[in-house]
Design a protein around this nucleic acid. Structure first.
Length: 205
DNA sequence: GGCCAGGTGTAAA
DNA sequence: TTTACACATGGC
């Protein structure tokens, strides 16, 4: 039977993560995850990197909060949707500061529900921030995950159904204490697999 | 030149 | 509850 653990093993056999950090997303565990999660919405990664380069001096919660909206819009121009991403990012940073004081405290105590209340954060961004920013056991479901699953004839309607499918198979085979790392690795392998086999996967549309 | 990318919010049916 | 649409750039 094909469950997410079978997919996990299939991807592992591909050896996709050579020379990739333990937590696959660049700068995992830092405030930068919050920025990249939102800048990356419906945007190519190359454009996200261009925007992040323009934010070099503002990559901590405190320094980011010194930016004004006009300057931020200019800096994140390459990654698109800047008129909505800029105010949403500033409001989010402000709320993190007000509710949690420090990013470290945010990492320890933020909930998925709190994130989903923030304008500009939907289910995928919430899970990306929790998984890679806070090292929590939350599986990220993105276009890539849906595309790989389609290759194996697995399709659902809602985000929640995809998330449950991906998490269930792993949970049966991994200890609770390992889950956060395994989910991060699993999602990372899914993305790398897409990059490697993009043409083949897109032909399944 | 058209299509798409590591989505989300809003409004209308 | 589902569907349609706006938001925007840069690479292919």
């Amino acid at each position: 039977m094909f469950d997410s653990y079978a997919l996990y093993n299939y991807l592992q056999a591909e050896n996709l993560l050579d020379n990739v950090p333990e937590y696959w997303w660049p700068n995992a565990g830092t405030f930068q995850i919050v920025l990249t999660a939102i800048l990356g919405q419906n945007t190519t990664w190359l454009n996200v990197e261009k925007s992040m380069d323009n934010l070099q001096e503002y990559l901590t919660l405190e320094s980011f909060l010194t930016l004004d909206e006009k300057s931020l819009i200019k800096r994140i121009h390459p990654s698109g949707f800047y008129n909505q991403k800029a105010p949403r990012l500033l409001a989010l940073a402000k709320n993190i500061k007000e509710q949690f004081s420090t990013f470290e405290n945010f990492q320890d105590s933020v909930t998925r529900e709190w994130l989903l209340e923030q304008k500009g954060i939907g289910e995928e961004s919430a899970d990306a921030i929790l998984c890679y920013g806070c090292m929590r056991a939350e599986m990220v479901v993105d276009t890539y995950a849906k595309r790989v699953l389609k290759k194996f004839a697995v399709e659902f309607k809602t985000y929640r159904e995809y998330k449950i499918f991906l998490e269930e198979g792993i949970q049966k085979h991994c200890k609770q204490a390992q889950l956060a790392k395994v989910y991060a690795l699993f999602h990372g392998m899914i993305v790398e697999y897409n990059k490697h086999y993009s043409k083949e996967l897109k032909s399944f549309h």
